[in-house]
Amino acid sequence: MSTTELAWFKSSYSGTQGDDCVEVALTEQAICVRDSKDVTRPHFAVGRDGWTSFVRYAAHG
């Protein structure tokens, strides 16, 4: 799936002042992640289980 076919979004915690952010896009198989400042660079994909583990870890500091 090309990056133009994905629905990218930023976290609601992201500022509107051009701060450093990542964007994510959801697919059935994975979560895709890219740099919001340079969307021409390749994204990477993480399986849903891996993403869930990452978010759980990040939420608990």
Rank of each mutant, 00 (worst) to 15 (best):
M1Q: 10
S2N: 08
S2F: 01
T3N: 15
T3F: 00
T4D: 12
E5D: 15
L6G: 13
L6D: 09
A7P: 04
A7F: 03
W8C: 14
F9W: 02
F9S: 14
F9Q: 13
K10L: 00
K10A: 08
S11H: 07
S11N: 10
S12T: 15
S12V: 13
S12G: 14
S12E: 00
Y13R: 15
Y13E: 03
Y13T: 12
S14K: 05
T16H: 08
Q17T: 07
Q17P: 14
Q17C: 07
G18Q: 04
G18C: 03
G18W: 02
D19K: 07
D20L: 06
D20G: 06
D20Y: 02
C21S: 10
V22W: 00
V22D: 03
V22S: 05
E23L: 09
E23F: 00
V24W: 00
V24R: 04
A25I: 12
A25R: 09
L26M: 07
L26W: 04
T27L: 05
T27E: 01
E28M: 07
E28W: 02
Q29P: 01
Q29H: 04
A30W: 01
A30D: 08
C32K: 11
C32Q: 12
C32N: 12
V33S: 02
V33N: 02
V33E: 01
D35E: 05
D35M: 10
D35Q: 07
S36K: 12
K37H: 05
V39L: 05
T40P: 14
T40I: 08
R41C: 03
P42T: 13
P42Y: 00
P42L: 05
H43K: 10
H43R: 07
F44Q: 08
A45M: 11
A45W: 00
A45R: 13
V46T: 02
V46C: 02
G47L: 06
R48V: 05
R48T: 05
D49S: 15
G50M: 08
G50L: 03
W51K: 07
W51F: 13
T52C: 03
T52M: 11
T52K: 15
S53H: 13
S53V: 11
V55C: 11
V55H: 04
V55M: 08
R56E: 04
Y57C: 15
A58F: 10
A58G: 04
A59H: 09
H60N: 15
H60S: 14
G61M: 05
G61S: 14
G61N: 13
